[in-house]
Nucleic acid binder design. Structure first.
Length: 572
RNA sequence: GCGCCCGUAGCUCAGCGGAAUAGAGCAUCAGCCUUCUAAGCUGUUGGUCGCAGGUUCGAUUCCUGCCGGGCGCGCCA
């Protein structure tokens, strides 16, 4: 792939020219090969001279001049120019861009697929919402981001495992079972209400009905909470999880595994990891100071099993077991992540609500303690989705019962529009979703712009055969320079950059870059489409050149949409 | 009190491992269909990049302090 090869060429030239001047890998990592902001400056540019000037004691422009000759020695380069404070600008041969287009067509889905910088296997954990009810629209953001990140890491050459942590072991399941039982009793006309702080959502009425259909009045006079929990836990979790799975499937998301926390507690993972940390001197018995920020009247210090987070610069140590000896959320999290490590995953990505930022910091330190490295755990925090209904914010709370269901939104706007929209802003930017506006906004949603470009590219291929123009033989194609319109050349430039986009987006775990790239490529296609007529039965050679460019664009557009989880329609 | 996130054009947002005149979409206004899908294209208006310092040859980008908005802060989840 041209971009990858060319950047290697730049680095090789730099290394050779500055051999023996003490350049380190870190210095070279600062060398960027990217597109100039202003297209008139060329097709690619590098900041190498500016970044390295100080290191080798030369003026940036002088160093740039020195590098020019070597840089010119690449078959794709048409011209090299030193400009501004020390940029080196490259103009590429149009033939090289065409060649890149043909390579994209030949490689098809493999174009843009990279080799990972190391062999570490990645696990992406996402969604992971508590199995206590259906998914609301806010969780959709998590689902879409996680899925796109997993796709992206695969595209970047990683082996990827997708996992959903089923939090079926905590107190919220107890509350769920109590709520379910109350709904169940109501079906028998008993005068009971869903407990305060329970789950009042109507979905539990349906689930209670299922329970009644299955077991009849078996649980009618059972009042012991522990018995109910033991007996109904599996049913409650499974039925709720099925609600979730339905929406997950609508979003075209699949997991390699639903990991049960409850099942994990049947193993000795927890004990193992605590012992491991204890051996490192990072676990001890002690007391915590009273919580900050609010008054706790009944605070009494008690000795707990603690993780020494303060050894890693955090303000407070973290409890692993609570005063009843039950693992805390943090304790479970360590055990779960230790399990991931034991299964051979060394790149742990977790898409997680930013409201839990307090939780993932200590976890990051625990993983650092276990692995000795800081580049294993990668939380991807995202801001909550704010939902407006009739211009008014809707409070999203399962317990309050006023949920905006993901499934409702998907029914309204469609999976493609939803997924694409979720990926148009970076995860830390708050996202406002106006329900009333969502439908009306569909027509100017950028997803249609991109899909339309793909449909047009397909339509032209259909038209070709109707006009009796023979199909393109890519291998035999010998394009003439004159057959390539400037706007077609711009399309090829975008095609050339696709591997760079994959590389940067995957490294930063930022799939929103995909949708920006898709829009940019689509814009180039639309512009070119308007600029000249592609199909000309009287000039087959020029037509074939254009169809090759179109095929390259179509290949890449389809691929980037696939990574986003969005359809690439052949007609609209 | 502490922690995290955000503050860029009228609106929604990119850019922020520093660099050449700060970008896109929408909205405004003016054009383009007897020609491969006008869900498209071209042009136009519009910004002291929250404020103040600092580092640098160079800061929207890095550091510090403020201001404004959001989220969170026991052994809960």
């Amino acid at each position: 792939m041209l971009y990858i090869e060319f950047r290697q060429h730049v680095l090789a030239v730099v290394k050779t020219a500055l051999d023996g001047q003490g350049l380190t890998e870190a210095d070279l990592a600062n060398v960027a090969v990217e597109t100039p902001k202003d297209a008139t400056h060329g097709d690619l540019a590098t900041n190498a001279a500016m970044v390295l000037a100080k290191k080798v004691g030369m003026a940036p422009r002088a160093l740039a001049e020195k590098l020019t000759e070597g840089l010119q020695q690449h078959e794709a380069v048409a011209a090299v120019e030193v400009a501004g404070p020390g940029f080196i600008n490259f103009r590429l041969k149009t033939a090289a861009l065409v060649g890149q287009g043909l390579e994209a067509v030949r490689l098809a889905g493999a174009y843009g697929t990279l080799q990972a910088p190391d062999a570490r296997k990645a696990m992406v954990e996402y969604v992971s919402i508590n199995p206590t009810g259906p998914i609301h629209v806010g969780h959709g953001r998590n689902a879409v981001f996680g899925d796109a990140i997993a796709n992206l890491l695969e595209k970047a050459g990683r082996e990827v495992w997708r996992e959903y942590l089923v939090n079926d072991a905590g107190g919220q399941i107890r509350v769920l079972v109590k709520s379910l039982h109350a709904r169940y009793l109501q079906l028998f006309r008993r005068e009971v209400t869903v407990p305060e702080n329970g789950y009042p959502g109507e979905y539990l009425i349906d689930i209670a009905q299922q329970l009644k259909d299955r077991d009849g009045d078996k649980w009618l006079d059972v009042t012991d909470e522990e018995t109910l929990l033991t007996e109904l836990r599996a049913f409650a979790v499974e039925t709720c999880l099925n609600l979730i799975k339905t929406d997950i499937e609508t979003l075209k998301i699949r997991f390699d595994r639903y990991f049960s926390e409850h099942a994990m507690h049947g193993t000795d993972r927890m004990a193992q990891v605590v012992q491991l940390l204890r051996d490192k001197g990072l676990v001890y018995e002690g007391t915590l100071p009273p919580p900050k920020g609010k008054e706790v009247a009944d605070y009494t210090p008690v000795e707990l099993t603690l993780f020494k987070a303060t050894a890693f610069g955090l303000p407070e140590d973290q409890a692993i077991y609570n005063r009843k000896g039950i693992p805390t959320y943090f304790g479970q999290d360590i055990a779960y992540h230790y399990d991931k490590l034991q299964r051979g995953y060394e790149l742990l990505v977790t898409v997680i609500g930013i409201d839990q930022s307090g939780a993932f910091k200590p976890l990051a330190k625990a993983i650092e303690a276990l692995t000795g490295r800081t580049d294993v755990y990668h939380p991807v925090p995202y801001e909550m989705v704010k939902v407006l209904r009739n211009g008014q914010p809707v409070k999203l709370s399962k317990r309050a019962g006023n949920i905006v269901l993901l499934s409702d939104v998907l029914d309204e706007v469609g999976t493609d529009a939803f997924r694409f929209t979720m990926l148009t802003v970076k995860p830390t930017t708050p996202l406002t979703f106006d329900l009333a506006h969502a439908v009306a906004k569909t027509m100017d949603n950028p997803v249609f712009y991109v899909q339309y470009a793909h449909a047009r590219l397909c339509a032209v291929e259909r038209q070709r055969s109707e006009l009796g123009i023979p199909p393109v033989e890519m291998d035999a194609l010998r394009p003439a320079e004159a057959d390539i319109h400037d706007d077609a050349r711009d399309v090829l430039r975008e095609v050339m950059l696709y591997p760079a986009v994959i590389e940067q987006a995957s490294r930063a775990l930022e799939p929103h870059r995909l949708t920006f790239y898709a829009q940019s490529l689509a814009a180039a296609v639309h512009r070119w489409y308007a600029a000249e007529k592609w199909l000309d039965a009287a000039n087959v050679q020029a037509t074939h050149t254009r169809l090759a460019v179109a095929a390259a664009a179509r290949t890449v557009l389809a691929d980037v949409l696939m990574l986003c989880g969005v359809n690439a329609p052949e007609s609209m």
